[in-house]
């Protein structure tokens, strides 16, 4: 374990090892989880079944009759020491543009059905989020949400649902509590918000995140019929960088027609992400990322 490590190792039964890298959410903690799990994937340790990077933690599932749990613990601590603060680690990933119809009719219809579950029954989710984050209008809140890019810090809850953390300093982070009581319904591809995370609902279902808008693009396709899903049924991977692009209803309908015809593709580009370079100058780094996305 590295000097001053905040990591906490705990067995989840006899076949999981859970590692909390930090109690708090930060890009640093998340990137460390990405780096450690990437090294762990490459190590190909026999008996490892699942390696799951998460926001500020990670978890492995293993067969304890194949790999002794205490040996595995020692190995994970060794890798943590090797990775250190992860500033020397580059992640090969992609940056993707996610078109969003903010303030859309479908999530608005849904949120009206669940007003009794909300902190502020007289406002919409967007109005509430804008107010408690000190914005003078919903438009300026949307500008902040769709301005700087987001880092996929975890994929899960249900199949293919990404949690995204905005690539801005702590004082610029948007924070919104979850609903007081979860809803029993959320439209598919809703752009949700809870705590400091954006989530994109991969399937229709229950949910407790505030609802800001909807994307026309599918992000989970178990039957793999859409062009972005030829290789795998899940679009977002841990580490995928996303930029939300506000669109109007006409463009939403045009993209939806492409989805219907199974021709829609997200605009995406391969990119290398370095935490050290990002931290040195976040604004310049984000601007360079967007150039990669918008370049030819």
């Amino acid at each position: 374990m590295s000097e001053g490590s905040k990591a906490r190792y705990s067995f989840g039964g006899d076949d999981h090892l859970f590692v909390e890298l930090d109690k708090e959410m930060s890009l640093t903690a998340n990137f460390k989880a990405m780096a450690i799990t990437t090294v762990l994937e490459q190590a190909k340790i026999p008996g490892l079944i699942d390696i799951c990077p998460a926001n500020a933690s990670y978890q492995v599932r293993f067969d304890p009759l194949e790999v002794p749990p205490t040996d595995l613990l020692v190995e994970l601590q060794r890798i943590e020491g090797e990775v250190g603060d992860a500033t020397g680690f580059d992640l090969d990933t992609t940056i993707v543009e996610v078109p969003v119809l903010y303030n859309d009719p479908w999530t608005n219809e849904t949120l009206l059905r669940f007003r009794s579950h909300h902190q502020d029954p007289d406002a919409t989710d967007l109005e509430y989020a804008a107010r408690i984050n000190g914005f003078d209008s919903v438009d300026s809140f949307i500008e902040a949400h769709s301005g700087a890019p987001w880092f996929t810090s975890m994929v899960g809850f249900v199949a293919g649902l990404p949690f995204l953390f905005q690539m801005v300093p702590r004082d610029k982070q948007l924070q919104v509590p979850k609903y007081l009581r979860p809803r029993t319904d959320t439209p598919k591809q809703t752009i949700g918000y809870g705590g400091c995370f954006t989530a994109i609902y991969s399937v229709r279902g229950a949910g407790g995140y505030q609802m800001f808008g909807i994307t026309p693009g599918p992000i989970y396709d178990p039957t793999q019929q859409h062009p972005d899903f030829e290789e795998f049924m899940v679009f977002f991977k841990p580490g995928t960088i996303a930029k939300f692009e506000p669109i109007d209803r006409a463009l939403y309908d045009a993209y939806s027609a492409q989805v219907e015809a199974k021709e829609f593709r997200f605009k995406q580009r391969p990119v290398k992400f370095s935490l050290g370079e990002f931290q040195a100058d976040p604004d310049a780094y984000n601007a360079a990322l967007l150039e990669v996305l918008h370049g030819s």
């Binding site: 989840g12 039964g13 076949d15 999981h16 859970f18 909390e20 109690k23 708090e24 959410m25 930060s26 799951c52 998460a54 926001n55 500020a56 933690s57 990670y58 978890q59 599932r61 975890m154 899960g156 809850f157 949690f163 702590r170 982070q173 509590p177 979850k178 809870g194 705590g195 400091c196 995370f197």
Partner: peptide
Amino acid sequence: PPFGAGSDPSNIVDAPYPIGS
């Protein structure tokens, strides 16, 4: 509450759930 965890004492920064947890 740590940053990102949520205010209820039973909240944590969203983390993986072991099968059987």
